[in-house]
């Protein structure tokens, strides 16, 4: 089956076989390798994308059910020349070690700040509870997000 969907503000067409996931289609059919393929059971958040504005695990979205939707992956967040503020904050605070979890964290953080520009530390922790960092670099991630929340507060 063929589906059409808007990925990173661009209309794309993709072949879909059986009940495969949106994550699989993004990576294997559309060549977007930002969202990571890890647990495939919703536990790690490394596959997080925005689907019609909601941060979801793309490994748990059936691709056939995403036809007609709008998807934002980390590739659509900023460009190499112009980083998204969340990306810039992660770089500045060293919130990236191996980087495997980073695309998911960036999408979750962008989603959080879009809804709540000045989250408290507790709100940040809760909003990022579905993103696991295997390098356990949570302190730097928190500082990066807090710096953005702080900037907006002042």
């Amino acid at each position: 089956m063929k589906i059409t969907l808007v990925v990173n503000r661009e209309e794309r067409e993709a072949a879909v076989h059986g009940p495969e996931s949106l994550l699989f289609v993004l990576r294997e059919r559309l060549g977007l390798l930002g969202a990571k393929d890890a647990c495939l059971q919703g536990e790690c958040g490394s596959c997080t994308v925005l689907l019609d504005g909601e941060a979801v695990c793309s490994c748990l979205v059936m691709a056939g059910d995403a036809a007609g939707s709008e998807v934002l992956t980390v590739e659509g967040l900023g460009t190499e020349d112009e980083l998204h503020p969340v990306q810039a904050a992660f770089v500045e605070h060293g919130a990236v070690q191996c980087g495997f979890c980073t695309p998911g964290f960036l999408i979750s953080t962008a989603h959080l700040l879009g809804h709540n520009p000045t989250p408290t530390t507790d709100e940040i922790r809760e909003a990022l509870a579905g993103n696991i960092c295997r390098c356990t670099g949570y302190g730097a991630v928190l500082r990066a997000v807090e710096s953005l929340a702080g900037e907006r507060r002042s």
Binding site: P19, S21, L40, Q41, C59, L60, V61, M62, D65
Partner: peptide
Amino acid sequence: LLAGGTDLMVEINYHARRPEHVIALR
């Protein structure tokens, strides 16, 4: 039947289920 997929897709990803016909309710 498929709603949010948070239970069903785990089963599909781990090859516990391979549906032939899906009705998506979203």
